[in-house]
Amino acid sequence: MKILVVEDEAELAHGLIKNLELEGHIVELCTNLQTALITVENHFDIIVLDINLPDGSGLEVLRRVKRLHHQTGIIIVSARDSVDNKVEGLELGADDYLIKPFQFAELNARLKSLVRRVHFQGSEIITYHELEVNSSTLETYVNSTKVELTKREYDLLIYFLANKNRVLTKAGIAEHISKGYMDYGFSDDYIYTHIKNLKKKLLKSGCKDYIKNVYGVGYKFTDEN
């Protein structure tokens, strides 16, 4: 995927680019509004857009992109946790809205879901060894045998599949599953129960144990040992 990152904070931008490139994307960076407005003349699959830019609002970029390329997916990344901003951004055509600070796994999961929505019209078969997930029918197969997962278990699996080989903290997972309602009182046990059930179901249907516990602080989805 060709991704444009519009972010004025160099430290954040570099971490982001490094991670995105590791995921196999081609990444370009703009650090202010003016260059971003010029750069978006070219086509990008995804734009990761910061709203607070030193020379103006990132919403300008959003408006221009929506005029030029309908196919481009846009994720707004902002330090401003305001419902108004969020609503305005989404009304202007942004596909997702992420509040800083965030862990890369969260952005990555949303990015992949966005890619599926924009470029595969929501349907994509995600495969990982014997595991197969159909994102349009929300069905999961192990060695072509269907596994019945709950919605939450499915969400967890998709999240793990989007972030293979990354250490995912329990808080990060809970935040993703609760869609930002983490501070509503989710406990670690809650996450633990769901992951335990998911693991059990996958193992039972003959899938290898890819979900590894990382010293009690989180999980890692990997085929390494």
């Binding site: 904070e9 430290e11 954040l12 971490g15 982001l16 490094k18 991670n19 330090a79 800083k100 600070p101 965030f102 862990q103 890369f104 796994a105 990354r166 250490v167 903290t169």
Partner: peptide
């Protein structure tokens, strides 16, 4: 908020 974002991103990187 920005330094917090940087710290989060760096710690995340370190964790990986």
């Amino acid at each position: 908020q920005t330094p917090l974002a940087i710290i989060t991103s760096r710690l995340d990187e370190l964790l990986q």
